[in-house]
Amino acid sequence: MAGLVTGSVMGALVGCQNMEAVSPWVDLGNQVAKNAGYDTDSRLARAIKDTLSASTDRASTGLSQQGAFHLQLPPSAQPVANSLRQFGFGSYVDQLEAAMNRGAEQAAVEAAPVFKQAIAGMSVNDALGIIRGGDTAATEYFRGQTESALRARFQPIVEANLRKTGFYDQYKSMLAVYEKLPIANKPAMDVERHVVDSSMATLFTRIGEEEALIRKDPVARGSVLIGQVFGEG
């Protein structure tokens, strides 16, 4: 009997087009299974974690590839960059921007274990809240749980790549002087912070794109979830 019921629920799920449509069937499937003696909340939570783990892996792996980022110096530094190019020092600007992008790519690799730790610590209620939440529930969860840890991991990687340019110390000295100037509303010139902020913004944008794909087609993108919750019986 349980197999017939889960088969019916599976058929209904296959016809759903988004996560909003899936949620009532998840609730129905849970209730039916609970009545039959199954604890599907924990099984559903495990399946959601598997799906989110795969999605965050795709996001961090994609951004770790060479050419994934197209970072440039912050807008406030563009006048300086333009002047350097005008006087024949464009290679220094190119070298700096290349180091920025390599740093961002290498930092993206570090995101995967941070996301895995956040997923491992996710409670059943957290997981169920994500699947039943708003369009960006997973992205907001990851941002809240991982932002400070990601910054801590990204910063030394970005710094190490900028040091490879050979003029990192001069840049830091110039930045220290600049930040002490008595100028109101000074534009930001901190390249490290710019790279870290831009890298994280791009990463969470990619996470959001993965979440949108899951919500648009939960059966295709979350097949593990569907299989674990409704594939047995």
Rank of each mutant, 00 (worst) to 15 (best):
T136G: 01
L73Q: 03
F87S: 01
L52Q: 15
G37V: 08
A111N: 01
M100L: 04
G121K: 05
P75H: 08
N30H: 09
G90C: 02
G133V: 05
T56A: 10
L84C: 00
A77W: 04
V114P: 02
G67Q: 05
D126C: 04
Q31E: 11
A77P: 03
A104Y: 04
A108G: 02
A68E: 01
K49M: 13
G37E: 03
S42C: 11
G103M: 11
R132E: 08
S76N: 08
Q106H: 13
K34C: 10
D27W: 01
S64D: 00
G67M: 08
A81W: 08
T40L: 15
G103L: 10
Q106G: 12
S76Y: 07
D39Q: 14
R46D: 15
S42W: 05
F69D: 00
G62T: 12
G121N: 06
Q95D: 10
L84K: 04
K34P: 02
P113N: 06
D50Q: 07
V32T: 11
R85C: 02
G88N: 00
S76Q: 08
N82C: 06
D57R: 12
L63M: 11
R102D: 09
A33T: 09
R46A: 12
A120F: 04
G103T: 11
T40M: 15
Q95E: 09
G133F: 02
D94S: 14
L128S: 04
G29S: 03
E105L: 01
Y38N: 10
K34A: 15
F115D: 01
R58G: 11
A36T: 09
I119K: 11
N30I: 06
R85E: 08
M100W: 09
T136N: 14
A127G: 02
G129S: 07
E97N: 08
A54E: 12
P113K: 00
V124W: 05
A120G: 03
N125C: 07
V109G: 01
E97S: 06
I48S: 09
G121D: 03
Q31S: 07
E97L: 09
I119P: 10
S91K: 12
R102P: 00
G29M: 04
H70I: 05
I119R: 13
G37Y: 06
A127W: 05
P79N: 03
N35G: 15
I119L: 15
T51Y: 05
D94M: 09
T56K: 04
G62N: 09
Y38E: 12
V80I: 14
H70K: 15
G134V: 11
N125H: 13
N35C: 12
F87E: 01
T61H: 14
G133D: 08
F69L: 06
L128Q: 00
P75V: 03
D126M: 06
F87P: 00
N35L: 15
L52A: 13
F69K: 07
L28V: 11
A47R: 01
Q106Y: 07
